[in-house]
């Protein structure tokens, strides 16, 4: 049986670990709140952008943008948003599962895949598995700016414009609430078709484009895709923090259980050694007196 001192050091080390996990839990909780705020403040832009895009879909432009065409699929692009750090439960694994399931469908049709990885975990995963990672960004921190993402996204948009890829998907975790994150695979390109126009928008009209339709639409669509990716990244960060909070809470609780168990064993061992000592003394005394 383990000796008393050994158990005592073990309890000590579990307690130290528990201190770390509970600190991480609290840090994640406060970061989650901030990340949620950022998620909210990014929403108006996405909403307004969606309005503008839906207006544009009904303007009868003489210029037909490639982002609106459905092409025959020969190659597919994925933008996969993951976290930089670990210790956040099954967050990234679930995301990879969803993205691999979607990629596999293309693979079965013999269609190759390009990946744009945002976040360290995704880069590690896809390079480790031998995926074709064409662009990457990592260490964007807790407060990502749109400017951090432009480069990586542009690689994919250029590939689409040049006809290297014919579909573009965005994979990220959607923030449902602080306990639930849902991995999402969303189609970015070609742009999905729009429903009925807003009321009051008369049909058969067109914008005045300055300087010309092509360059303006290029700019708008590029920003649209970027804002969707940005929204995905911000949401993923909120997910990461909440997943980490939950994981660390579980770890702290587990440490509690472990300490209780060890304490029980410790008491038993201590008791046993006392009993043994007494019986030795009694035995010794009995031997002397007889």
């Amino acid at each position: 049986m383990a000796n008393v001192k050994e158990i005592r050091t073990k309890i000590g080390s579990v307690q130290n670990t528990q201190k770390i996990t509970s600190a991480m839990e609290m840090v994640a909780a406060s970061k989650m709140r901030k990340a949620q705020d950022r998620m909210q403040s990014a929403r108006p832009y996405a909403d307004k952008m969606r309005n503008v895009i839906s207006h544009m879909a009904f303007a009868h432009s003489e210029y037909n943008h490639p982002f609106l065409h459905k092409r025959e699929v020969k190659r597919v692009g994925y933008i996969v948003v993951t976290s930089d750090g670990g210790l956040c439960g099954g967050l990234n694994i679930n995301l990879f599962k969803a993205s691999i399931a979607s990629m596999r469908e293309w693979e079965d049709k013999n269609i190759d895949i390009d990946v744009c990885a945002i976040g360290k975990k995704g880069i590690g995963f896809f390079t480790g598995l031998g995926g074709n990672v064409v662009s990457e960004v990592s260490q964007i921190g807790d407060k990502p700016g749109l400017s951090d993402l432009i480069g990586a996204v542009k690689v994919m948009l250029d590939a689409y414009n040049e006809g290297k890829i014919d579909r573009l998907y965005l994979v990220y975790n959607r923030f449902v609430n602080s306990l639930t994150q849902k991995p999402m695979v969303e189609a970015l390109l070609p742009l999905p078709e729009h429903k009925d126009p807003d009321e009051g928008l008369v049909k058969h009209w067109d914008y005045i484009y300055e300087p010309d339709a092509k360059s303006v639409l290029d700019g708008v669509f590029m920003r649209y895709i970027e804002s969707l990716v940005y929204q995905g990244v911000v949401e993923n960060i909120a997910c990461e923090q909440s997943a980490r909070m939950v994981a660390m809470k579980a770890a702290t609780d587990n440490a509690d259980d472990l300490i209780n168990e060890l304490q029980l064993i410790y008491n038993k061992v201590r008791q046993a050694s006392i009993t043994q000592e007494i019986s030795e003394i009694v035995g010794g005394a009995a031997a002397l007196s007889s």
């Binding site: 880069i123 662009s135 990586a152």
Partner: peptide, 9 residues
């Protein structure tokens, strides 16, 4: 920025 992202990848 795009080139940089590509190179890193």
């Amino acid at each position: 920025a795009a080139l940089e992202a590509k190179e890193r990848a």
